[in-house]
Simulated assay, not measured.
Amino acid sequence: MDTSSPAVFVNAELLRMYIGRKVRTVVQIVRSDGGVVIGRSADEQQLVIKGSPPPLPLTTFVEVIGIADGNQSIHAEIWNNFGDIFDTSSFNRLCELANGEFKSLFL
């Protein structure tokens, strides 16, 4: 495991704080079109994911690790299928905690 450049847990709201940095999130796939994936973040906002091609077939939920390159977009480096059932509410809470009172544990 490479710990030299950790990826920050984010939802769409937190993404804008990390433009140009490595981030990690889970999205629900809305659609996939020509190398661009549109997903719904854990806080119910739309994210655009570009970059390395996703694994096929895609499951309903995927983890994306990459560089935040805009307020609502990520340039993906790593994709992981997370299955068809995922607790977005708990993941959203994890993002809030990882960027709040427990930030020092995640960076």
Rank of each mutant, 00 (worst) to 15 (best):
D2V: 07
D2G: 07
D2S: 10
D2F: 14
T3K: 11
S4M: 02
S5A: 04
P6V: 07
A7W: 05
A7P: 02
V8P: 07
F9I: 02
V10F: 13
A12S: 05
A12L: 01
A12E: 05
E13M: 08
R16C: 10
Y18R: 03
Y18Q: 01
Y18S: 01
I19G: 04
K22V: 03
K22R: 12
Q28T: 03
I29H: 04
V30L: 11
R31C: 09
S32G: 04
G35H: 00
S41M: 01
A42H: 03
E44V: 06
Q45L: 08
Q45R: 15
Q45H: 14
Q45M: 09
L47R: 00
V48K: 12
V48H: 08
K50H: 15
K50R: 15
P53H: 04
P55D: 09
L56P: 05
L58T: 03
T59S: 08
T60Q: 14
T60F: 01
F61A: 00
E63F: 01
V64C: 05
A68V: 01
D69H: 12
D69W: 08
Q72K: 13
H75S: 15
H75Y: 15
E77Y: 10
W79C: 02
N80V: 15
F82R: 14
F82E: 14
F82L: 12
G83A: 09
I85M: 13
D87S: 04
D87R: 02
T88C: 15
S90P: 14
F91E: 05
N92P: 05
N92W: 01
R93D: 14
R93M: 09
R93W: 15
C95T: 09
A98L: 06
A98G: 11
N99Q: 06
E101M: 13
F102P: 10
F106L: 00
